[in-house]
C-alpha cells in the first residue's frame, strides 16, 4: 500500500488523473440539480431528432409544445394511434424542420394527422434562421452509440449551471431546478417515449415573461415565414393528411406581450390557415398551469393534452377504419 502511494506520488500525471476522478465523482454525487429519474433536455431532444416514419399523429412546434403536449395523454381520446410530440426548443418553421415533420408519418399509417403548435415566435425569421432543429439533428447524426448511451445513463456528468456547481462544491442543498431539469414523459405513458418533456418545477407564473420580450427585439412575425408554412399546409392537406393548428396555451402576461410586440395577427393567420386546408382549434390560452409564465407545468400539460385530444376527436368526425379499430381497442 505504502509502495503504491509512493508510486502515485512519484508519477504526478497518475496522481492528477486519480484526483480528477475522485473530484468528478464527489461533485457529481453532491449535485443538486438532477433527480434520479431525470434526463437532460438536450438529451431528450437529441433522441427526438433521430425519429422518422414512426407516427400517425405528429405534434410540432417550439418549447411551448415540447412542455405542453403529451401524445400518450391524447391517446386516451384518439385511440391507440402513434402520437409523437416532435417539438423542439426555440424552433421556427424553417424548411428543414418542415421536411423532417413530413418524414415522421409511418408508411403504414391509416390516419395521418398533423397538429401544428403555432406561437408567434415560431413564425419569426430569427427562429427560422437559428434553426434549432438542425442543431439537434446534427448533434444526433454526429453522435455514436457510445455517446448515445452516455446521454441516456450517466446524467451525473451532465454540465451544470455555475450556481449549481458552486452549490455542489459547498454542499448547499437548496439547488435550483431549471427548465432543462425535466423528465421525459412518464405519465401515463405505458413505457413509451412520446417526446413530451414534463416539468415539475416550482411555479412562478411571471418568472420569465420579461425575458421573452427580447425574442421580439427587432424580430417579428414575417409574411415570408407564414407563407412558407402555408405552402406545406396546402401540400399536406391535399395529400390527405388532416392538418390542425392551435396556439399553445401560456399565461395572460405572455399573450399580452406577444400581442404587443410580435406583430402576429392571429385572426388573419387562422383565416389563411383554413383557406390552405387546415383546421384551427381554439384553445383556452390561460386555463392551464404554467411554471414560468411561458411553458406549461406537468399538471397543466396533462390537462391541456386531454382537452386537445378531445377537441381533435370532435373535429375529426367519425374515425377512419384504422382509427376506429384502435379507438375501440383502447376502450
Amino acid at each position: 500500500m505504502w509502495n503504491l502511494g509512493r508510486k502515485i506520488l512519484a508519477e504526478r500525471s497518475l496522481l492528477a488523473i486519480v484526483l480528477a476522478g475522485v473530484l468528478i465523482v464527489s461533485v457529481g454525487m453532491r449535485r443538486v440539480d438532477l433527480g434520479q429519474n431525470e434526463v437532460s433536455y438536450a438529451g431528450a431532444e437529441g433522441e427526438k431528432a433521430g425519429w422518422a416514419r414512426c407516427a400517425d399523429v405528429v405534434i410540432t412546434g417550439d418549447s411551448r409544445v415540447v412542455f405542453g403536449v403529451s401524445g400518450n395523454v391524447m391517446r386516451e381520446h384518439l385511440g391507440d394511434l402513434r402520437i409523437v410530440n416532435y417539438g423542439f426548443y426555440g424552433c421556427g418553421y424553417d424548411e428543414q424542420y418542415l421536411r423532417a415533420i413530413d418524414e415522421q408519418f409511418a408508411p403504414d399509417s391509416g390516419q395521418k394527422m398533423l397538429v401544428l403548435g403555432i406561437t408567434p415566435h415560431s413564425l419569426t425569421e430569427k427562429a427560422r434562421r437559428r434553426n434549432s432543429f438542425k442543431v439537434e439533428k446534427q448533434r444526433f447524426e454526429s453522435r455514436t452509440t457510445l455517446q448515445a448511451n452516455a446521454v441516456r445513463h450517466p446524467r451525473f456528468f451532465l454540465p451544470m449551471k455555475p450556481s449549481n456547481f458552486v452549490r455542489a462544491i459547498l454542499g448547499n442543498q437548496k439547488g435550483k431546478a431549471n427548465v432543462r431539469n425535466a423528465k421525459v414523459s412518464n405519465q401515463p405513458d405505458k413505457g413509451v417515449n412520446d417526446g413530451w418533456i414534463s416539468s415539475v418545477q416550482s411555479i412562478n407564473p411571471v418568472a420569465d415573461v420579461d425575458n421573452y420580450r427580447f425574442n421580439f427585439f427587432n424580430n417579428v412575425v414575417t409574411e415570408n415565414a407564414v407563407e412558407k408554412l402555408l405552402v406545406w399546409v396546402r401540400k399536406w392537406s391535399s395529400s390527405g393528411i388532416l392538418v390542425f393548428g392551435f396556439r399553445p396555451p401560456t399565461s395572460e402576461a405572455m399573450v399580452a406581450l406577444e400581442e404587443q410586440l410580435s406583430g402576429f395577427d392571429e385572426s388573419d393567420f387562422v383565416e389563411r390557415f383554413e383557406a390552405a386546408g387546415g383546421s384551427w382549434i381554439e384553445m383556452d390560452q390561460y386555463k392551464y398551469l404554467s411554471f414560468d409564465g411561458s411553458h406549461l407545468h406537468r399538471d397543466g400539460a396533462i390537462a391541456f393534452s386531454h382537452d386537445l385530444g378531445e377537441k381533435i376527436r370532435l373535429e375529426q368526425g367519425p374515425p377512419t377504419d384504422l382509427a376506429r379499430k384502435s379507438f375501440l381497442l383502447s376502450q
Binding site: L9, R12, S13, L15, A16, I17, L19, A20, V22, L23, I24, V27, G28, R31, A42, R139, F157, P159, M160, P162, F165, A168
Partner: peptide, 22 residues
C-alpha cells in the same frame, strides 16, 4: 508534488461540469 497534480485535477473536473454545449 501534490499541489501541481491537484490543480490539474481541478481543471479537469471543471471541464466536466462547466463545459458548454458540445
Amino acid at each position: 508534488r501534490v499541489a501541481q497534480p491537484t490543480m490539474v485535477a481541478v481543471v479537469l473536473m471543471i471541464c466536466v461540469y462547466l463545459r458548454g454545449p458540445g
